[in-house]
Amino acid sequence: MPKPPKKEFDLRERIDKIKNSGLSKGKEKEKETDPNDMLLPLSNRIEKILGIFQGKPLKSTTMNYLILYDIENNKVRRLIAKYLEKNGCIRVQKSVFLVHSDYKKFESIRKTLAEINEVYDNEDSIILVPLNISDARSMKLIGKNVNINQIIDPPNTVFL
């Protein structure tokens, strides 16, 4: 007998299910890594970021935002990551997303994240930072071999 199709829940319904399951601070201490939390290869992430910063000039109604979070609960963290990706956010690192959107969409994302944080007992933090191009150009990167200057201001090359 085939399995019945999985019911699709929206983020709010999933968080309500977690809340109703009795989840509270300190009850879940999962240490395993989830394959769904895996990042795209670095070259793919750079390509997506380049698409934002080197694209057409921004309309005055759009902005770039960084969304950073520190969420203890694996289920909630996974659901929020999926929600952000579904809403067009680009995963830069495991807990850092970049979004290019208008204020209305960004505000909708912010309100949803605030509602989620209110639903269950936690000590999580979510930080939303507006990021203009000049700020992005002044970023410095330590660690992985990615030259942030090439992402923001790639060198011009002329072939003759």
Rank of each mutant, 00 (worst) to 15 (best):
K3V: 11
K3Y: 14
K3S: 15
K6W: 06
F9C: 07
F9V: 05
D10I: 11
L11N: 01
L11T: 14
R12S: 09
E13A: 15
D16C: 04
N20S: 06
S21D: 12
S21W: 10
G22A: 12
G26N: 05
G26F: 01
G26A: 06
K27C: 08
K27I: 10
E28K: 13
E28Y: 06
E28L: 13
K29V: 10
E30F: 08
K31W: 05
K31G: 06
K31H: 07
E32M: 09
E32G: 07
E32F: 11
E32T: 14
T33D: 13
P35T: 08
N36G: 11
M38D: 14
M38W: 08
L40C: 04
L42Q: 14
E47G: 07
K48C: 03
L50T: 10
I52L: 09
I52P: 00
G55F: 05
G55W: 04
P57S: 11
L58N: 08
K59D: 12
S60F: 10
T62Q: 13
T62L: 04
T62P: 00
N64F: 03
Y65T: 04
L66F: 14
L66D: 02
L68Q: 04
D70W: 02
D70Y: 01
E72M: 03
N74F: 10
N74K: 15
K75D: 15
V76Q: 08
V76K: 09
R77M: 15
R77N: 10
R77Q: 13
R78K: 15
I80P: 01
A81Q: 05
A81Y: 00
K82M: 15
L84A: 04
E85R: 14
E85Q: 15
K86R: 15
N87M: 04
C89E: 01
C89L: 04
Q93N: 13
K94C: 06
S95K: 03
S95G: 05
S95L: 05
V96T: 14
L98D: 00
L98M: 13
L98F: 02
V99I: 15
H100K: 11
H100G: 02
Y103H: 11
K104D: 08
F106P: 00
F106W: 01
F106Y: 07
S108T: 10
K111C: 07
K111V: 12
T112S: 11
L113Y: 03
L113N: 03
L113K: 07
A114V: 06
N117C: 04
N117E: 07
Y120Q: 03
D121N: 06
N122A: 07
N122H: 09
E123W: 00
E123Y: 00
E123G: 11
S125C: 09
I127G: 01
L128M: 15
V129Y: 07
V129A: 09
N132G: 03
N132E: 11
N132P: 02
I133S: 02
S134V: 12
I142W: 05
I142C: 04
G143M: 08
V146Q: 08
N147L: 13
I148G: 00
I148N: 09
N149M: 08
I151T: 11
I152R: 01
I152E: 02
I152K: 02
I152N: 05
D153A: 13
P154L: 12
P154V: 09
P155Y: 03
F159E: 14
